[in-house]
Amino acid sequence: MVGKSKIWFWIAPTALPLMLLSSVPVALLGYISLTSFEIGYDWADHDFVGLANYRRLFSGREVEFWPSIRLSLIVTLVSVVLKTGLGLGVAVLLNKKLRFEYIATTLIIMPMAVNPAIAGLMWKLMLSFDFGIVNAAAQALLGYKIVWLGQSWALTSVVVVLVWMHFPLSALMLLGGLRNIAPEPLEAARLDGCSNRQVFWLIVVPQLWPVLIGSSLFQAILAFQAFGPIYTLTDGGPGSSTTILPLFVYKTAFTIGSVGLAGAAAIVLVAITTALSVAMMVIGRRGHQG
């Protein structure tokens, strides 16, 4: 057995800075959310205002706050369904031992290499009204162009970019899950006369369930905190039609300069993502036991 002092000799210099690094910024953020600090002033000049920032947010006087939560929920829900669906489809295909499997995998995971700001800009170029390739295709196929980044389509465009960026991750996670499923029960079911479709929905999907839930929750966390691609694609606009919660935090803190108020909104964001990750851990643990 190792002595107690010896344990702390190892833990103190390593785990302690880690704990500080992870808890101090959040604690500081919590404190900032209780102050009236604004950009342009000295930090020493801030006033402690208690829960005033939260009251202001929740009262609806900050007209963009509740809409930003609503938009975040829509973007998260729709993009997670699409990412998981597309990821599952690709994972099933990659699991079929098709030809060119290696090159296909390489091409499919390429979006993971692109940094978020450049991803947003790439799509902004492709979706451009005048010289975008997407509108060139629309003109040829439909006979008219669409204002992809205008009021009615911008949110759809944001979802498309998020799906493009993140679906490869779902595909990889689900492919790993598919490869862990034992082949014997599937063979047995086929011999008993089950169709491929029945085998997939009745045997494969239930076994894949923990991975499906895990990857969906992880994707929900990613979608809820998406910032870079939307910053460069629409900057939350036009108007505030794509101002999801992270964009609201950024505008409030760095464009308007009300850091205290933005801190309160950021705490809401942290609370939501933490709840999602706790759910993920609980389900992950249950999956291990079951």
């Binding site: 704990m19 992870s22 930090w43």
Partner: peptide, 27 residues
Amino acid sequence: LVVFTILSSRIFPSIALVIPFYIIGIA
């Protein structure tokens, strides 16, 4: 608890944590 505290910081949204880092940067 120590492990969870360490790991949880990985999923914190950067747009939220950039605010305290900005204040640390000013201070």
